[in-house]
Simulated assay, not measured.
Amino acid sequence: MPGVIVVLVLLLIPIGEAIYYSMTNWNGISSTWIGPSTYVRLFENPIFWRVAENNGLLLLSVPVAIVIPLMIAAMLHEHVWGWRFFRSVIFLPTAISWVVIGMVAVRIFSPTGPINSLLGLIGLRYLQTDFLGHQSTALLAVSLTFIWSMVGTNTIIFLTGMSTLDPSIFEAARLDGATRVGMFRMITVPLLKRYFQFSFVITIVTAFTALFSLIFIMTGGGPGYGTTTIEFFVYQQAFDIGQFGTGAMLGVVLFVGLFVVSMVQMRLMRSDD
């Protein structure tokens, strides 16, 4: 019963209030009931779909944020020269706050930053630009920063999985003439199925719910709505404009999306090997 009360007070009641206020015109003090038509108007709003498109484009970076750490983990697992040092360096981003990462990224992608300087040194001055000042490149800069920030976490996940694999399986494969590439493709990757599932869900949840600080520091959601995600849109509607009802509605939409992802995760984790 104490556990039920805690869940009720801290989770279910706030979620229920968010659903209620999502169907009202709420300014943070008083609310006027409107009804489910608020969701109809939201889905008819082109800005919402522009923001949702940004989330969809960010999802394209998820496979990259998984494959790169997988390759790094495979090399570290083979104990290449200096693997202890590189393991520490690669894991370092996980110990840095999103704010610090964002501040560093702003300088890297600035017109006078190292990327533009490098382009000038190799004779590609025509590619120099203010990466964070154009919609066509700002989201790409955020995606690259997100991928870099996830490398440490996902590398540790895959290293943990590789450490649980039975060495006798690989020894038997070597005796049968299998190459390292063949063993990685036919043995390591299939046996890491559950770790892929976990990494996939963690990366998606991070892309949907943990990039507020990064976007706030790097672009402020701009230029225009070029880097505004649903998570950041909640903040803009509720605290910039004062439309707390719309903010609550966007929060409900985000909650439903993440709930679906969590259910898929649970289903996958229950699946047989």
Rank of each mutant, 00 (worst) to 15 (best):
L211T: 12
G16P: 03
I13N: 01
D130K: 02
S61Q: 03
S262F: 13
G221M: 03
V181H: 00
V181F: 14
D176G: 04
F244H: 11
L258I: 15
G182I: 07
E171N: 12
V51I: 13
F146N: 06
V106K: 15
V181S: 10
T209D: 07
V67Q: 04
R194A: 12
A52L: 15
M23T: 13
L11I: 15
T219A: 08
F170V: 10
V256K: 00
T203H: 06
R270F: 05
E78T: 11
N25A: 12
M183S: 13
L165I: 13
V64E: 00
V9W: 13
W148F: 12
Y126K: 11
S97H: 03
N55R: 00
V104Y: 08
D130V: 06
L58V: 09
G257Y: 04
V104W: 05
V64K: 01
G247H: 03
E17H: 09
T24N: 08
L144S: 05
S271Q: 11
I96Y: 05
G133T: 01
P223I: 02
M186A: 14
Y20I: 08
E78R: 15
V261Q: 04
F259M: 13
V151P: 00
R107I: 06
W33R: 13
T32K: 10
I19N: 03
V6C: 08
I5C: 02
V100G: 01
D166I: 05
F239S: 04
V256F: 09
I217Y: 09
A173G: 10
A207L: 01
N116R: 05
H77W: 08
I187E: 06
G247N: 04
